[in-house]
């Protein structure tokens, strides 16, 4: 019979628990283990521990292994809270696109804290940071999302920030955004993409299909 069954292959969790120290300090030390699997495991078990946020963020900033980064970001997402947000916001300025996008994904998952930093982020002098702020809004479950985006359309003078906002509005926009949308192409007359994106968003928001049937 080629099918075999080994009931002893997987020890009960309790047996393993004794082998490796499960205290916070032990797990934090394990974030520096040279084996990625140990770093991933430590990250996973530190998920939910608010006292481990700084250690996880320090490790994340050093970490080069993609799987370990993934686990550290997940742990931060599970833990959540003010400190996670404070440590992740500076990563939006990182040169490392993967780290930046990882931070954005975690911030998207912490909607309740967004009101505390979003206005400031949307007023950042760096247009790339403002784009990342709009990216956070893309998947944020927060009732003010349409208002923040409308504010971008009304005030931001950078074409790429406005373009990002229009894109999100194709999904989340409501009737209150229509005026700001319709006025946008006039602010960027040399940009055919803006006119196109605004037409698309308007169509999605009003539900009116366009004349050529597409």
């Amino acid at each position: 019979m080629p099918l075999i069954r080994r009931d002893d292959a997987a020890p009960a969790p309790g047996q393993e628990r004794r082998e490796i120290p499960r205290d916070r300090e032990g797990l934090i030390a394990q974030l520096d283990d040279k084996r990625p699997v140990a770093r991933r495991r430590a990250s996973r078990e530190l998920a939910g521990d608010a006292g481990a946020v700084d250690a996880l963020c320090d490790a994340l900033e050093r970490e080069q292994d993609e799987g370990c980064r993934h686990a550290m970001l997940t742990a931060l997402l599970v833990t959540g809270g003010q400190r996670v947000q404070e440590r992740l916001l500076p990563l939006l300025r990182s040169e490392d696109a993967a780290l930046r996008n990882g931070a954005i994904e975690v911030l998207q998952g912490m909607p309740k804290l967004a009101a505390g930093y979003m206005d400031e982020l949307l007023a950042d002098p760096d247009s790339d940071v403002r784009i990342f702020a709009v990216n956070i809004l893309e998947s944020l479950r927060h009732e003010r999302v349409p208002d923040w985006l409308r504010g971008v359309l009304e005030r931001d003078d950078h074409v790429n920030v406005c373009a990002a906002a229009v894109d999100v509005l194709t999904e989340v926009g409501d009737d209150h955004c229509l005026d700001a949308l319709r006025q946008l192409p006039a602010r960027f007359p040399g940009e055919p993409f803006i006119a196109f994106a605004v037409r698309t968003a308007e169509r999605r928001i009003t539900g009116e299909e366009r004349g050529d049937g597409r």
Partner: peptide, 11 residues
Amino acid sequence: DVNMPRMDGYT
């Protein structure tokens, strides 16, 4: 594009 969720353009 560069900035995208799950996997960025450079990667």
